[in-house]
Each structure stands twice: as structure tokens, then as C-alpha cells.
Design a binder for these strands. Structure first.
Lengths: 203, 203
DNA sequence: TAGATACGATACGGTATCGTAGCATTATTC
DNA sequence: GAATAATGCTACGATACCGTATCGTATCTA
């Protein structure tokens, strides 16, 4: 059984930063600093390696203060994770193939970034055993698959793709190989590879 | 610096089970029991959650004994991981498409098995930071991509696929979406999905 | 059967971790 | 300027983990 914690008066454990502007400058500073340090540590050592003590050390914010803002370690990590979404723009080049290619090479870039590289598998691992984390991850996931959906639906509209196209399947066929290459087969991930996949999947 | 350990006379820290038959029944029993318990725990809680103490508890083998056989926890986990490869057979139905479809639905089955489900991401996460584990994983990886390679190369021979086909790319295009679906998008993974992918990628 | 060998039990040292308590200090708001 | 609220600091307690040491006991091999 968890004991009742002595939170600050604001009593908005998480996400307060996004929900409402915090008046007190001290609070703002603490949350921002801690979240930044958490993200950094997450990239460094993954989900399991991000301890509150280390976050406190790196951020310079006292551990007690951290616990005043986030009731538990996982809450903090969840919060930090949802700040690391890098929303892709939706290209509009005129043709479906060019749009998709743009998104794909964009994704290749993202997957090659050291940050993501390290943190994603550990999030997925954690999600495998914690439904809250799974939920957070699925939002994150939607973030970078949404542009694909937009582009595909637009192509259906214009007739470039047949009506009744299975959108989720097409997204999997396109982006799956990139993820696979990065983490499962560990072969080099190049722009050319992305182009090859697009050609093969879309024809 | 690690101190010298007092191993048994056999002094074959790991994999002795596979390299040479062990004479002493006690040794055989210990290793088999511990490896089994380790695998089970691995499936249960993933790589990070498999502690030596718990393995000792579950297996009934004393922790000291475990350390007599494996110099370190990670060595034990590595050893256990390499025993969980489930080699797929290579189908030979006559046509390339049927062969591939067989392999794909087979892989779908594997990915739906609760065991693999849980352990693979945690291995990949660990591999992200430990080259030894990365190495072990890549062997494991080759284990279930090899049949695809065989089938593809055969199809190139028979002319069903053009010469100069990029084998690694084709494997990624085929299997990538399955992995993606299981761990990244978390959509349902069905045989029909696999068939759709095959059709789309191979034409 | 005797000596070598593996095992079990317990205990330990060291470290890391999660959270919490208490109290002094500082900043903010009213 | 005074009350209020947030922070920092240090020190805990509890737990879990790794890996080792010691010593007595059981088992195998020669």
C-alpha cells in the first residue's frame, strides 16, 4: 500500500506543464529541468536505466522535489516520454509516391538519430508489462504514423490508390521494414533502402 | 576488476552442455535445470527482470552452484537465450509464393506465442548497450531469417525472381511488417495480414 | 571403498534503488 | 513586509541485487 504523499498545494502531479500554465516560477523551473534531464538520461540508458537518483544528480533538482511533482518514478518517465514526440509534417508534393518517399526518408533519419535508437526498444519492453506505458506508447506511435495515414487517405481521394485500401496494412508494409532493419536485422538503414521499399510496396 | 572464481574442475563456464557431453550426472542436472528456469523467467519478466536469486529460487539450485557454472549473470542469460531459438523448417511446395506464405504464417504463429512476445524487446534493448548480447542476438536473428534466404535464393535459381534480387531487402520487406505489427503498432497480427503482405511485396 | 568433486545452506559485503521524514532555507504572492 | 509555499539537504528504512566465502554433506569416479 502506498502512503499518502505530501504534494505541493498545486497538487497537479503530472502534465501540469501542458494543461495549464504554472504561475510560480520555481515550479516551472523544476518541472522543465527535471523533464529535460529525464529525457536525456532516457536516451542515454534507456527506460530501466533512468533512476530518480541519477535524474536528481543530473538536473540539480533535489530528489525530494522530484517526488513532490511526480508521485512515482514511472509517472515521471511516462511524462518525459510523451514530450519526446517529434511530429513530422505532412508533405504535399503532388504525387503519392513522392509524398510517401519524403515521409520514409524522414523516418529513416529519425531512426538513425542516436536518441530514439536507444530509448524505443526499452519503452516497448516496458510497455510489454505495464498497460499505462503501453497506452502512452500508443499515443507516441500514432504521432509518427498519422502523417502516413493522411497521405494515404489523400491518395485514395485522388484515385491514386483504389478505394477500400487497407490503410493500417499499407503503413505496416511501408514503415515496418525500416523498424525491422534498425532493430531486428541490424543492417544498415539508408535512404536508398527506403526508396526500394516504396517502389516495391507501392508499385 | 573481477576476482578469479573457483570454478569446478571441468572449468567449462558456458555452453559445455552443447560442446561435449558431461559425464557427471550432477553437473548435467544443474545446468539443464538452471537453463530451463532461466528461460522461463526470461519469458516471464524479460531480460532485466531475470535475477540470479530468483533463478535460484525457481530452479531449486543453489546460487553458489549457479555461479560455479556461469561466471556472471549475463553469461547465464546469454546462454539461456541461445537455447530458445526455434529453427523453422524450409518448405518446398513448388512455387515461391506458397513457400514464402508458409514461412510467413509460421512466423506469425511464432510472434503470437506469449514466450517470444515478452523476451525479444528486452533482448534488443539489452543488445543496444552490450555488444556481447548484440552478437548473441544476431545469431538468433539469423536463425529465423535463414529459411527465407534459402527460399528466395532458390526462387532466383528457378527464375521466379530476377537475378540480382536484393535478398536482405526482400526479407525486410516481407518480415518487417510482421514485427512492426506485433511490437510497434500493436495491431492484431493475423494470417490474413501476412498473406496481404506477401501479395503486395511479391506480386 | 576412498578420494575427488560437486552441491547446498547460510551469511556476508557492497551497491543501487525507491520512496519518505524532518527541518532549515529561499522565493513568491498578497 | 509577512505569510505562504516550494525547494534543498541529509538522513533514513526497506528492498533487491550481484557475487563471494566458508563449511559441511552428498555423490560420482577410479
Amino acid at each position: 500500500m502506498r502512503k499518502k504523499r505530501t504534494l505541493n498545494k498545486l497538487d497537479t502531479p503530472a502534465l501540469a506543464l501542458h494543461e495549464a500554465e504554472v504561475l510560480d516560477e520555481r515550479v516551472r523551473h523544476s518541472r522543465i529541468t527535471v523533464l529535460a534531464a529525464t529525457a536525456e538520461l532516457l536516451f542515454d540508458r534507456g527506460f530501466a536505466g533512468a533512476s530518480v537518483d541519477e535524474i536528481s544528480r543530473r538536473s540539480g533538482v533535489a530528489k525530494t522535489t522530484i517526488y513532490r511533482h511526480w508521485p512515482t518514478r514511472v509517472d515521471l518517465l511516462r511524462d518525459a516520454c510523451s514530450t519526446i514526440s517529434t511530429p513530422q509534417g505532412v508533405p504535399d508534393t503532388g504525387t503519392f509516391e513522392a509524398d510517401v518517399t519524403a515521409l520514409m526518408t524522414n523516418l529513416v533519419d529519425l531512426l538513425r538519430t542516436a536518441k530514439w535508437t536507444s530509448v524505443l526498444p526499452s519503452i516497448i519492453d516496458a510497455a510489454e508489462r505495464d498497460p499505462d506505458i503501453a497506452n502512452m506508447y500508443s499515443k507516441l506511435q500514432r504521432g509518427y504514423s498519422a502523417p502516413f495515414e493522411t497521405v494515404i487517405l489523400r491518395a485514395v481521394d485522388t484515385g491514386e490508390l483504389p478505394a477500400g485500401t487497407d490503410v493500417a496494412m499499407l503503413i505496416a508494409a511501408l514503415t515496418g521494414p525500416l523498424f525491422y532493419r534498425r532493430w531486428f536485422s541490424r543492417d544498415p538503414l539508408t535512404d536508398d533502402f527506403a526508396v526500394q521499399i516504396v517502389k516495391r510496396v507501392i508499385r
